[in-house]
Design a protein around this nucleic acid. Sequence first.
DNA 1: TATGGTTCCGGGTACGTACCCGTAAATTTA
DNA 2: TAAATTTACGGGTACGTACCCGGAACCATA
Lengths: 352, 352
Amino acid sequence: MKENSPKGVKEIARRANVAIATVDRVIHNRTGVSAKTREKVKKVIAELDYQPNLLASRLASGKIITLAVLIPSVTDETDFWDAPLRGIQRAEQEISQYGVKVESYFFSLKDPKSFTAQTTKILKAGVDGIVLSPSFISEAEIFVAKCKEREIPFVFIDSNLPDQPSLSYIGPPLFQSGYLAGRLCTYSLNEGSKVVLLNITKALDSYTYKQIEKGFRAYFSDQKHSLTILRVDIHQTDFKSVANQLQTLFAKNPTTAAVFVTNSRTSLVARYLDGAPFPKKPILVGYDLVKDNRSFLAKGTIDFLICHQPEDQGYRSVMALYQSLVFSTKINKEYYMPIDIVTKENQAYYRN
Amino acid sequence: MKENSPKGVKEIARRANVAIATVDRVIHNRTGVSAKTREKVKKVIAELDYQPNLLASRLASGKIITLAVLIPSVTDETDFWDAPLRGIQRAEQEISQYGVKVESYFFSLKDPKSFTAQTTKILKAGVDGIVLSPSFISEAEIFVAKCKEREIPFVFIDSNLPDQPSLSYIGPPLFQSGYLAGRLCTYSLNEGSKVVLLNITKALDSYTYKQIEKGFRAYFSDQKHSLTILRVDIHQTDFKSVANQLQTLFAKNPTTAAVFVTNSRTSLVARYLDGAPFPKKPILVGYDLVKDNRSFLAKGTIDFLICHQPEDQGYRSVMALYQSLVFSTKINKEYYMPIDIVTKENQAYYRN
DNA sequence: TATGGTTCCGGGTACGTACCCGTAAATTTA
DNA sequence: TAAATTTACGGGTACGTACCCGGAACCATA
């Protein structure tokens, strides 16, 4: 019952009549092999459909692969990035068994300089691969240019810079996500009323918001709805400012039937709606099952949250790099997360 | 910069003044070590917070872990199980690198005997762990009893036998899933109309359908809806029979406003609805983004599909066994999949 | 005390690959 | 054509763990 035939490089060496070291050179395209020998060995490798034993390989090399993760820090304003971080840590734990280390770097969403500072650290640390959220476009572009120069692969998480040579983008399909938001806004909607598209943000990450807005508008033009879309930008993220602006908004537009918040700050609107008297509460649609949104969803103030499995985004980003570096697996340039609809009824089982 | 301190068992052996083999005996609780020595070694292991190098361990042992998967085969009637199978194969591919083999066994949902026949094969093959869908309750109970006897761990996928000593159940939270179905049926619903709960199945897997039905009814009693829930069972799964029964059903109940199909055969109803004249098409809610359902969802005949990430179920089932066997990771007795709402707008990005 | 049987323990090799080092052969240079 | 390089290749050890095998120490019995 025992398979006594030697395996791997040893068998290749035997069949090709060369030393193991030579086989090794061929496998790793190293120099020091004549063209003739190289061909001979390659042929045997192909014949045997040789698959290197990764256990042995990693063990022998002793090398530790280091990955860097660069994402926004969790703040009291939003804990959105807590979820990707959890996924990243889960991935880390899984692959740490196999000689891979993951180092996390955090920057402040309020401060592009903190982003750049961290990129410097990462480059100095000399890592083998990078996961990053390119929240600040021009800063990120500078960084990835340097990565490319150094041949360090990187993947974008949650938001994308489509024209950059990233290994992959792992995040939501923004246009379609906005499109679905349109649909969700129109459940039990009477014709002729107004719909508000609400950006609450300091730094308008143009690409992300633009794509969402395009999708949102596309839904209504596809449906030939006759209602008005009112786009409102609020550049303050504290509750008071938001409440003030909403006050004015609703005073001017009493027939507002739905509000779509383009990011996770949906709870700010919910909080306002809960405190204001409405004959018929507008439908509220937003993003992300963050802590502050949870209770409003449970209460019914928020009707729908669109989510893109942030934890899984973190997990997959790290794993994509790992797969690429260790197994040389081909990675899709775009990996779109599903567009999940989270409601009061299914939120308990949503894996954030 | 080089860490020259010996690692692992060697270092333990040095510190405890014993041979490597003795350390090995202690680690694997083998016999042949005096109580005194054992204690001494254990102390050193604790001090060093020793983590075995899995690469080296798996390499040296050379053992191949074999897992068996027992699921229904894909038929032309439903390709639901294609998705879990894909997930299983993805997992297999990932861990085959590390000396794990996965063997798939298929049975026919129409024939309990085929299930039993495959279980016999599996036991004969002598595997280290099993993933199974316990579609036939009593047959499955007999099988898992044997597994328990032989101390072979097993996990249930997609449907559960709660009282059995499984390592884990990986599948949907059925009650809550039915509950959400209730909610989905009531979008744009006028009071006073009827809702149909429709089971189209030959073998009524009592536990699964009962749980879904309970959840479905619970929603309506929670909402204090005044409408009637009409439960209908159709025991034939071919289109003609189903169409006939639906004909009678709708003739008798013209005010039917929504139909909830409790499994993936939703497309049969959609096909009927498409061909029948309706003043107002009832809302159609069902399960699973299988091939036959896709086009009806895109057309709008099916309004909502509830899905539980079947591919991921397959992936996670295999990985749970792997984690448990290789890393001795603790596995949750229940791992509930999220309850996803799939619509025309987000189906393109749904990872089935 | 000799004999036989346990119990306990250490030496040593193997797993499949990476890579250092030394040397023979081929090539260039003088 | 001999010497100096360069190129090509093989021997051999190491990675950290598993496990075989053989020997010493201990114990019991006659």
